[in-house]
């Protein structure tokens, strides 16, 4: 049983006078077995939230806390966060030329588990997971993300989630750029993980499309760097029909009011 707790998180990018606050006090709790959808318009800071939790050096945390089972995540290096049980499926996975997928996966699994997985069972596990994600076996010998199509990259991210078995997985717009088949395959991969274990999922998305495949327990509407509304799966349906307009308008008024006070 794991709990990721985000309290009043403030994050900015840039330095000095160019610094710009992106997250403005995010509160969120994700527990094992729960699936949370974070939905919001472009530029609302959804991806910044994902990368800040993972520890990307571009983002500076200026206030608030992030803890995993009480441990201070913000004090950890990027690799320590992953070993503590956090996983980020990236919207734009990075090419790592010269490093094969099989080598990468095994190295990552060794780092996460603290010892090299037994070769025979490992090869079998990788193969089985790749088949479930409908990935060709030749994939394992290709260089990490090099020349992968959009769908291949996302499947590769989910493959890593399946093999590394994190406590909390953050999926950053995993649905973007996927055709219907790929979306189904990727969603099934996420659902298998949810059914099998106690994973907590933070699903970041712009569209409601993926929520037809992955049913969230909670939906959070994210606007201008904070959560502005929360509800159950029905909130997603409402967003599907009405869009973000109402929330964005409120937020603009709020920002204008804040601006006037300042």
């Amino acid at each position: 049983m794991s709990v990721l707790e985000i309290r009043d998180l403030h994050v900015s990018v840039g330095e000095g006078d160019d610094a710009k606050e992106i997250l403005r006090g995010v509160d969120l709790t994700v527990r094992s077995g729960e699936t949370h959808a974070i939905m919001g318009p472009n530029g609302s800071g959804k991806s910044t939230l994902a990368y800040s939790i993972a520890g990307h050096p571009k983002y500076t945390v200026t206030g608030g806390t992030v803890t995993l089972d009480g441990e201070d995540v913000l004090a950890m290096t990027v690799d320590e966060r992953a070993r503590a049980g956090l996983f980020l499926a990236m919207q734009y996975p990075v090419e790592v030329p010269g490093v094969s997928v099989s080598n990468f996966l095994r190295t990552a699994a060794t780092a996460i588990k603290g010892e090299a997985p037994k070769l025979r069972t490992w090869v079998k596990d990788v193969k089985a997971e790749m088949e479930l994600l409908e990935m060709d076996s030749a994939f394992a010998e290709r260089n990490v993300n090099e020349g992968f199509s959009g769908g291949e990259k996302k499947r590769h991210e989910i493959l890593q989630m399946r093999l590394l078995k994190p406590a909390i997985a953050i999926l950053d717009e995993t649905d973007s750029g996927l055709d219907v088949d790929a979306l189904r395959i990727v969603s099934e991969g996420v659902n298998r993980t949810r059914e099998e274990g106690e994973i907590g999922v933070l699903l970041i998305t712009h569209y409601t499309r993926i929520l037809r495949y992955i049913k969230p327990d909670f939906v959070h509407v994210f606007v201008a760097g904070k959560v502005v509304a929360e509800g159950g799966a029905e909130l997603a349906d409402q967003l599907e029909n009405e869009g973000y307009a109402a929330y964005v308008k409120d937020s603009n008024e709020l920002a204008a009011a804040e601006g006037a006070r300042a």
Partner: peptide
């Protein structure tokens, strides 16, 4: 830095990440 971040985000420490890339580069 983006390659380093990607590898580290999978639990691989920075030194091993460099080794992985250099090994692949030379192999």
């Amino acid at each position: 830095d983006e390659q380093l971040f990607y590898l580290c985000s999978r639990g691989i420490d920075a030194e091993t990440a460099r080794r992985l890339v250099v090994r692949g580069f030379f192999a």
